[in-house]
Structure formats: C-alpha cells, structure tokens
C-alpha cells in the first residue's frame, strides 16, 4: 500500500507559468490570496475568477489534474456553503420545517464557497508547475534578506532538502519493518481498535530509532566532507529573474490594488 504513493504533484512542462522563477510564483500566490481576502463584491470575484481561469489555461496543466486538488475538500466545502445558507440571519426566502434559507445566507454561502474554491485551485497551481527542489531554492532566496534579523535561510532550505531526500528511504524502511514484524507474528490489519493502536508500537519504536541512527551517520559523513553551512556555497542551477517575472509581479501588484480599490470605493 505504501508503494502507491508518488512524491510530488509536479507536472513537468514548458508553459509560461512553468518558466516563471519560483520566487515569482510564491510571491504571486501570496498576492492572490491577499487579493482574495480583501475583495468583497461581485466585481472583485469576477476579476479574480477570470484571472484563475487564464493562468490555469496558460499553465497547460490538464484540467482534471487541477480539479483533483479539490477532491479532499468536497465535504468541508459543502458543509461551509450549507451552514452559511441556513444559519445567516436575514430576510427569509424559503422555509422547510426548521430550515430557513435567507437572502443574506444565500449570498454569503455562495461567496464563501467560491472563495475557498479559488483559493485551493490557484494555490495548487504553484506546486503543479514547480518542482519541490525549485520551490525550496526559491524559499531560501526569498528568506535571504531576513538573514540579518536571524532567519536561518540556508539551514531551513538544507533541512527541507534532507527531509525530501529521506522520505522515500523512510517509506521503504516502514514497509520493511512492517514485513519483518509481521513475520514475527505482529498484526497490523486486524483486531479491534485498541489492539491496532497497540500494534503500532512494534512499528514505531524501530522506525524512530532507525531515523535517529541515520541522522547520526549522515552527520558524520557530512563532517568528514567538511560541510560548513551556506556561506560561500556555489550552485549549479542559478535562479534568475527575467523580464517576464517582473511583468508577472507587476500584474499581481495591480490585482491587489484593484481588490483594495473595490473594497473601499465600489
């Protein structure tokens, strides 16, 4: 069962969105979320919806992949919409026993649902179009200016890379330990809930011990190779901001300004 999991939702490609610098995409996603929470009326939502549709088309990611990101949210989405429908006080327009649908509720429910939908669809595009390594690099570079106030940009990125490297290894290890313990008579998939919870112990103890042992071995190996942190490190792939990145960032800035204008003036 553990083998079925594929790492990363990244779908390689060479669309305009793929080619943007990861820093641009991270900042752009943040700007979009900001605009989404500031916007309050139909005009704002219309612009933001059009914007999402356009970048989804530009990314040339099959729509089915984009929509797949919504799947885990169906339940909470329906819940939010219905709760807002029936629990918002206001002018009643429909009634069935104790359920009262109000005009304000209808409005608010649809807006909330739509906002969540846009939020998830657009931010999932960030990870669909950039590889985790590129994003890690982007996060390190974005955090660099904060180094002066003590944010350890390099260390954070390094730890992310290590975690990324060891996820498949530890997955395999989990599988191995489960099989080894099953051969010794452990039960993982039967019994009542208490027995199953207890069954986790012979899996978890060796798993954590082995992770600690790996950390120790890796530390020794890195010390032996004179690892000394991020200072003076050179890279094979340099991130570079191009003209298109500045255009994209300007566009995102305009979107936020529009949202503020819409909130205050329209």
């Amino acid at each position: 069962m553990l083998k079925d999991i594929t790492i990363g939702q990244y779908i390689p490609g060479d669309s305009l969105i793929h080619l943007l610098d990861p820093r641009t995409k991270i900042l752009g996603a943040m700007a979009f979320i900001l605009a989404l929470f500031i916007a309050s009326g139909p005009e704002g939502y219309l612009i933001l919806t059009l914007f999402s549709i356009i970048i989804i088309i530009l990314s040339r990611i099959p729509t089915s992949f984009v929509l797949r990101g919504l799947k885990p949210l169906y339940y909470i989405l329906a819940f939010t919409v219905l709760l807002n429908f029936f629990l918002t006080p206001g002018v009643e327009i429909w009634r069935w026993k104790f359920l009262r649908l109000t005009e304000e509720g209808l409005r608010q429910g649809l807006f909330m649902g739509w906002r969540l939908l846009l939020l998830v669809l657009t931010t999932s595009l960030l990870t669909l179009t950039s590889s985790p390594i590129a994003l890690t690099d982007g996060i390190e570079r974005l955090l660099n200016p904060f180094k002066t106030i003590g944010v350890p940009a390099h260390e954070l990125a390094m730890m992310m890379t290590i975690a990324l490297r060891f996820i498949p290894t530890l997955l395999e290890e989990t599988d191995k330990i489960m099989k080894a313990q099953m051969a010794r008579g452990a039960e993982f998939e039967s019994g009542n809930i208490v027995q199953r919870a207890k069954g986790m112990v012979p899996l978890l103890v060796p798993l954590f011990i082995s992770a600690f042992r790996r950390a120790d071995e890796l530390a020794m190996a890195m010390e032996a190779r004179c690892y000394r942190g991020g200072e003076g490190r050179t890279r094979m792939k340099q991130l570079e901001m191009k003209k298109r990145d500045y255009y994209a960032l300007t566009l995102m800035g305009l979107l936020v300004i529009f949202a503020i204008y819409e909130r205050l003036c329209l």
Binding site: E155, A163, L164, R165, A211, R214
Partner: peptide
C-alpha cells in the same frame, strides 16, 4: 540537530 529535525520532518 539540523539532521535530526530534517529526518523527523520526513518521518
């Protein structure tokens, strides 16, 4: 510490 934190995140 760095490696332990990384491994724990992976775990």
């Amino acid at each position: 510490g760095m490696l332990k934190a990384g491994l724990m995140a992976a775990l």
